[in-house]
Design a protein around this nucleic acid. Structure first.
Lengths: 209, 209
DNA sequence: TCAGAACCTGAAGGTTTCTTCATATATCAT
DNA sequence: ATGATATATGAAGAAACCTTCAGGTTCTGA
């Protein structure tokens, strides 16, 4: 379980409070610059300036610009995976409807708690979406979902793997659409209601066994 | 209906065959460089080299790098919108199940006909997703979908606008997931079948009137 | 208190990229 | 055939970027 020395991995872990603050500031600044300037202009210089530190300092923690971006994405993913994991545990063994309702609520809450962060990081995920960190996070989420769905009290799904794949996609996609501004005019209640409908409709249309 | 002089719009239209070939070559090269190098390294120099023309030539048709990328995206979107439009017309007035089955098949065929192009352009759409061209294409597709769904012989959906929003999202998302490699192990038939299930499940879970 | 570790700074070298323009060639209409 | 138009070329200036490193400051433990 060692932290492999990849150029995409953080270079040095902060040990004093001072540097912990620095790393936090860099993370916040990364999101802000990403949101205001776009990924192409999210440079080490700009982020450092926004964070109120020198470029040199930034490079002490991230060997390259990419590592800085990847770190921001990873921090976000951990938050979301955690929320999903927790929700899956909470609703384990319940009804399909209870599960979906509860999970959707928890997921959307986590995703929209910091909407700007979520939105900005899509561009980063686009670029680093194929790397191991991302793949691992995806697998972790899929694992939770599979365990939960398999434990449904009222329904026994035949092909869990396929179900989880589509469930996952249909859970993420509406959130993304809303975050990038496609559904902003829709009231939040109606939005959430329809996400539930989409997922539940799919699951119920699935062959049982 | 004039072509506004924006730096993102093509600079000059080709009039001779010679230049038409050039513009085509640039389009193809853009996709290739995008696929092999990523959007950050998809530069005017690289694209021109790949296309077998000089940078100067490229700048004769696109005032900036961004315009070149936007043009590639637009060409793709026109193809897809066209396919959707045609399918919507074909299945107008049919059963909900016929519609969804037919549309999904047509859409996936169009989207996967040139999978590399589709996949590569997600990164571009991420950056230029909010601009007018994109918004217009989205509205056009939504219009077709709305007209088709409203004409369903067997079902009368209460809130078409909401239904179309989610339908649109649930149609695009699985294709995207598969294109970026998330569902590559799933057989094509099963994939398509589940997209239909997702959409049909949603529509049937919708309140009627 | 003091040495060593942790942390910070920012100027500067080396690249890459964007974009233009003066020049040259190809095509078309007459 | 020839002038006008369309198209192509690629060297080069300017700007932005990435990253390092030598030197300075702050903290911590003994």
């Amino acid at each position: 379980m060692s932290t492999a020395a990849s150029p995409l991995r953080p270079r040095k872990q902060p040990v004093q409070d001072r540097s912990r603050l620095t790393v936090d500031a860099i993370h916040v600044a990364t999101i802000q610059v990403l949101a205001r300037e776009g990924i192409a202009r999210c440079t080490t210089t700009r982020v450092a300036e926004r964070a109120g530190v020198s470029v040199g300092t930034l490079y002490q923690y991230y060997a390259q610009r990419e590592a800085m971006l990847a770190a921001a994405l990873e921090r976000h993913m951990k938050r979301i995976s955690g929320a999903v994991e927790e929700a899956c545990a909470t609703w384990h063994g319940k009804t399909l409807e209870e599960m979906v309702t509860g999970l959707v609520h928890a997921f959307l809450a986590a995703k929209f708690e910091n909407a700007e962060e979520s939105r900005s990081l899509y561009a980063v995920a686009e670029t680093y979406g194929g790397n191991q960190q991302m793949e691992q996070a995806r697998l972790r989420i899929r694992g939770c979902l599979a365990a939960m769905l398999a434990s449904a009290r009222d329904v026994r799904i035949a092909d869990i793997d396929t179900a989880v794949s589509f469930f996952h996609i249909a859970l993420m996609a509406p959130a993304r659409a809303r975050l990038v501004g496609e559904l902003k005019e829709m009231p939040e209640t109606m939005f959430e209601e329809n996400v539930v409908r989409l997922l539940l409709g799919y699951l119920r249309a699935l062959p049982q066994d």
